[in-house]
């Protein structure tokens, strides 16, 4: 009658998720504010760094990557690595044309 290995229990409470949501909203406000300023070529970099951090929060907290086994994390890193390789190869090809 015993149920083994129940779906993994996340230790997060409602409050923790709401905090992360507030952080995501704040980051959105910051990225809009920064885009309004004139910081030249750093504009794109700043926007992408903020977006990456937001994506990191969604991946680790909302998508529970933090509480999954290591193999999940390795999978995600490999997938992102291949996307990264595509970008590097594309731009190295593009810049030599």
């Amino acid at each position: 009658m015993q149920i083994h290995d129940k779906p993994h229990q996340h230790s997060h409470s409602y409050g923790a998720y709401i905090l992360v949501w507030l952080a995501l909203m704040a980051l959105t406000a910051i990225t809009v504010a920064v885009a309004g300023m004139d910081i030249g070529r750093f504009t794109v970099a700043t926007a992408l760094i903020i977006a990456s951090f937001k994506a990191y929060l969604v991946l680790t907290v909302f998508m529970h990557l933090r509480s999954e086994t290591k193999s999940f994390v390795i999978f995600v890193i490999v997938a992102l690595l291949f996307l990264g390789i595509s970008f590097v190869l594309l731009f190295s090809d593009y810049s030599f044309h």
Partner: peptide, 30 residues
């Protein structure tokens, strides 16, 4: 005791969110 379907739907939904997180600055904030 059995909610993995809901979790998977959630994973899909969060991915859709992540894609928008990148679309927004690249199209609206340049």
């Amino acid at each position: 005791d059995s909610y993995v379907r809901l979790e998977n739907a959630g994973l899909y939904w969060h991915l859709v969110d992540i894609i928008w997180i990148f679309l927004f600055p690249l199209f609206y904030l340049i």
